[in-house]
């Protein structure tokens, strides 16, 4: 019986992979664009650093690794759940989605994982290759950091998806989502360390950001990767990351129940 339930999600997962492969131009176009962004950022750091070393032992080389890996991670942080919720609310198909004998958020997750699998081959691999070729091979600071990196990356992806799903629930409040999507995207880029590591910020600002969940998406796994933090720091921050993941998961459960109830009462 459990197998049967999982089958449905597997089917959704598989169809999404096929759909993601469908548009050739978009695939190549996206890779090209992402690579250009990665390269321009790399040159920015090169020009800025020259041969200088920043306070915490960071050199231009570590910033290049940071840039390549940030682009690679951005592929893993691609989610469709917010758009999906917006569209199904706008088209009114959410009631039908929810009437199916599967958890609607389970379907959204399966869809995102399907897209992600396609993206691994389609985008992540070429970006990693081109980044290594054109900028620098992103070597991890020390082999012992690999397990920690993996753990924190999985938590990052969890936090990222949960934030997207929770954010997507705004769609039920009849506010224009397009503007909010933009606001969210730009806030994450600014606050998560995806473009500028937050240790460049003044201390007061960095302290505030460390208390927010955003830095646990990009900054923490990237810090582990380039070795810009001590082991003790990393352990305590992974602990905080875990706490944020749990808090968001709890919030998600609470809100999704409420949303489902609201839809069922309204009847769509």
């Amino acid at each position: 019986m459990f197998d049967g339930a999982l089958d449905k999600y597997l089917f959704v997962y598989k169809t999404r992979i096929i759909r993601s492969f469908t548009y050739k131009f978009e695939v190549y176009g996206n890779i090209l664009m992402q690579v250009i962004i990665m390269i321009t950022t790399a040159f920015f750091w090169k020009a800025l650093f020259g041969s200088e070393t920043f306070g915490n032992g960071i050199t231009a080389d570590s910033m290049l690794t940071y840039t390549v890996m940030s682009s690679v991670l951005s592929v893993l942080f691609t989610t469709g759940v917010e758009r999906r919720m917006q569209q199904s609310v706008e088209k009114g198909s959410i009631a039908i989605d929810m009437m199916r004998p599967v958890n609607v958020f389970g379907v959204f997750l399966a869809e995102d994982l399907g897209s992600l699998t396609a993206l691994l081959v389609q985008n992540l691999l070429p970006i990693l290759l081109l980044g290594s070729l054109l900028i620098q091979v992103p070597v991890i600071a020390s082999p012992s950091a690999i397990p920690l990196f993996a753990v924190s990356l999985v938590l990052s992806m969890g936090i990222n998806w949960l934030m997207a799903a929770i954010f997507g629930m705004w769609a039920f409040t009849a506010i224009s989502m397009d503007a909010l999507f933009q606001a969210k995207k730009h806030l994450i880029r600014l606050l998560s360390g995806s473009i500028i590591p937050i240790w460049f910020f003044p201390k007061w600002l960095a302290d505030i950001l460390n208390a927010l969940p955003f830095v646990y998406i990009y900054q923490l796994p990237l810090d582990i990767y380039i070795g810009s933090a001590t082991d003790e720091e990393i352990y305590s921050r992974i602990l905080l990351q875990l706490v944020w993941a749990l808090v968001l998961a709890a919030l998600f459960c609470l809100l999704s129940k409420r949303v489902l109830k609201k839809v069922l009462v309204q009847g769509g």
Partner: peptide
């Protein structure tokens, strides 16, 4: 659609914070 106005008035300027922060802090 008055609710859109607020959304864009807030979200559009936000995107330039990153660039300005880069210049100002970095």
């Amino acid at each position: 659609y008055p609710s859109n106005i607020l959304g864009w008035v807030i979200s559009n300027p936000i995107q330039f914070l990153l660039g300005f922060a880069t210049i100002k802090f970095v």
